[in-house]
């Protein structure tokens, strides 16, 4: 089933140095990486960012081929962005067919934007590939906890995200199961016009909602039975602390950002 092929946001199990970093480090590191991509204004700068990313990928043990798969889902977006930039940028004309024209600036910009987008997606995939969803939301909660004084319910938001992430695979499995059960009764999810297709989803969506509510009710009961009553005074089973690796990672990120700013100042190609 095509549903199973989605790799974006997936976790790739492992025990590398990257996997065992504090989730906060990886979150901040990803933000710095993305910031660097937007600071950089030259191909040379991208090369530095790409090298840093490659180092992290190598260290993490995630196969490059697996990482690249994540791009497939957003290939259309990349092509679309590249095409718009290629045809819509005014400047010195190099090629023309009717009203379609390609300019020197267009080629440059389209390559530039495509590289930025690809690096952006690969960089953020590395975050989810090397961090368990639960650890990730844990990191988010701890990053946002200081804002609790301003009324941000950090724990509740993180708990909601944790639960949502935890049940995505469950609901995907359930979807797969119900689809097959209805297909066995002759349901067709693949042909017909838009209206027919939308109607055809009812036999899938109704049972799916029923399941989702059942799961939610069960979970709420199970949480209550274990005396869950919000974030106040809760301690953690696996408390994460910054270690040597985290400081090293921060140093690397800072260097990358410095390079990115420097490359802009020095006007590299």
């Amino acid at each position: 089933m095509a549903i199973k092929d989605i790799t974006l946001g997936q976790y790739f199990p492992g025990e590398s140095a990257v996997h065992s970093l504090d989730p906060r480090t990886k979150l901040i590191g990803t933000v710095i990486f993305i910031a660097s991509l937007f600071v950089v204004d030259s191909f040379g700068g991208f090369a530095v960012c790409a090298l840093c990313l490659l180092a992290v990928v190598k260290l993490s043990g995630v196969p490059l081929r697996f990482l690249m798969r994540g791009l497939r889902a957003v290939l259309i977006l990349i092509i679309f962005t590249a095409a718009i930039n290629l045809f819509m940028t005014p400047g010195v004309e190099v090629w023309r067919l009717g009203f379609i024209k390609v300019t020197e600036e267009g080629i440059y910009r389209s390559a530039f934007m495509a590289i930025r987008l690809v690096l952006l997606i690969l960089g953020s995939s590395m975050l989810t590939l090397t961090t368990k969803p639960v650890t990730l939301t844990d990191g988010l909660e701890r990053l946002f906890r200081p804002f609790g004084k301003l009324g941000l319910p950090a724990h509740e938001l993180a708990m909601m995200m944790t639960i949502a992430l935890r049940f995505i695979p469950t609901l995907l499995d359930e979807t797969d199961r119900i689809m097959k059960a209805q297909m066995a009764r002759g349901a067709d999810f693949e042909s017909g016009n838009l209206r027919e297709r939308a109607r055809g989803l009812i036999p899938l969506l109704v049972p799916l909602f029923v399941s989702a509510f059942r799961i939610a009710a069960d979970l709420a009961m199970a949480m209550e039975a274990r005396c869950y009553r919000g974030g106040e005074g809760r301690t953690r089973m696996n408390a994460v602390e910054f270690g040597k690796g985290d400081y090293a990672a921060f140093a690397l990120c800072a260097m990358m950002l410095a390079f990115a700013i420097l490359s802009r100042k020095l006007n590299w190609f």
Binding site: A181, R185, A187, I202, P203, V206, P207
Partner: peptide, 25 residues
Amino acid sequence: IVFQYPEYQLFEETVLKDVSFGPKN
């Protein structure tokens, strides 16, 4: 094929309509 826990595939408004789903398709 009757799947494991087939009751989770029920979706129609009435029992009769749900059972008619297969032949209708």
